[in-house]
Amino acid sequence: MLETYRSDYAEQIARLTDLRDRRIELAFAAVPRENFLPAPPWTTISSGIATQTSSLADIYDNVLIAIDRKRGINNGEPALHADWLDAVSPQPGETVIHVGAGTGYYTAILAHLVEPGGRVEAYEYEADLAAKAEQNLSGYSNLTVHAGSAFGQSLPPADVIYVNAGVVAPDVEWLKALKDGGRLIFPWQPEKGWGPTVLVKRLPHGFSAAPLMTVGFISCSGTKEKAAPKQRLIETDLSSVRSLWLTSDRSPDANAVAVYEQVWFSSQAIEG
């Protein structure tokens, strides 16, 4: 019965997101979601409505599940993550950095997607969540859980950086860690609470940036960036972004949408 729940759930997620890569559906079917949750009864959240349940069938649905309601920490919406995974397309043999691993559910899915030969380096700032993630992921030989911030420190070279916490601006070290052709996806939240998902790709002449769906994530802990734009950004500003630059590589110009201490967003696309 449990395998049926997981396979039906994975099929539902694939339908909702129109997945291009069926490996993502298979990864959702393979990973037991309940192994990464608190003990039942669980609190599921859909359209802002919270419901308590002890039924496994109810957690195999496109719902948030509370990990710690007081801190606003959830096991995120599966369809959203499936969309993100499809966008960054982790491949066998690649290295993924997972920022904001929580209790490890989506870390496990990432670990499946880079098999064989790939690795996941997972970072979780909250010590209790990191300890729980390490316990939950103990059976995975191709990943390491790091208890601490993924901000402001050198990171291993990565093909994919997958960020599950809202940031005012991406950390410069994430961009430096991206290999040629590497992909970064993160929730850009210059105004706390909501903002666009941004997909960044490292190209030969810079970093392309594409705003995707609007999302709301808990803010990333351990960050030090400040909201530098002098004027409040509006939706048209956010949707106009086409590239991302290090201020050390190129000074902001007339196409700048948002300028921070170490990075800036531009409305000009990367040429070539």
Score class of each variant (00 low, 15 high):
G48K: 10
S138F: 01
E124F: 10
E11A: 13
G76S: 08
L19E: 03
E115Y: 05
G152L: 03
V200E: 08
Q189S: 07
S89Y: 11
L184E: 00
A127R: 15
G76E: 00
R183D: 01
A10D: 07
T247P: 04
G118A: 08
A177F: 06
L113H: 10
D128I: 01
Y105M: 00
A209H: 12
S47W: 13
A210K: 14
N35V: 01
K224E: 12
V120G: 07
I59C: 04
A14M: 02
P211C: 08
A258T: 09
Q262R: 15
A228N: 12
Q189I: 04
L143T: 06
V168H: 12
A165I: 10
R22W: 15
L85I: 04
Q262A: 09
K224A: 07
Y162N: 02
N142G: 09
V114Q: 04
G117P: 01
D61S: 11
A256L: 05
G118K: 09
T197Q: 11
R20T: 05
L85W: 11
G100H: 13
K201D: 00
D18P: 05
L85H: 07
I270Q: 06
G93C: 04
S239V: 02
F151R: 13
A258C: 12
A258N: 10
V200N: 07
A209C: 09
P157A: 11
I59R: 10
A122S: 06
T214D: 10
P196S: 11
G72N: 05
R22E: 13
G93W: 15
I161E: 13
A108F: 09
L37E: 02
P41E: 03
R202G: 03
D237C: 09
S55Y: 08
A177W: 07
L175A: 05
T236G: 04
F217A: 02
T4H: 14
P41H: 10
T4G: 07
Y162A: 00
C220Y: 13
F207S: 02
N136H: 15
I218N: 02
W194E: 01
T53D: 08
G181T: 07
E225I: 03
R33I: 03
G102V: 07
A209E: 05
Y162W: 08
C220E: 04
D128K: 07
H98T: 06
A122Y: 14
G195D: 06
A14I: 03
A210E: 06
E173N: 13
D8C: 08
G195I: 11
A228P: 00
A254F: 14
L238F: 11
W245L: 00
L19H: 11
V145M: 15
L80S: 09
H205K: 14
E134L: 01
T107L: 11
A57I: 01
E25W: 14
N74M: 09
D171R: 14
D21N: 10
L155Y: 14
S55Q: 14
H112G: 01
Q231S: 15
T43L: 04
A66P: 02
V168W: 13
R22Y: 15
T95W: 14
Y140G: 04
V172W: 08
A165Y: 09
S267Q: 06
S149V: 08
E235A: 14
L212A: 09
W245N: 03
I73N: 00
P32N: 03
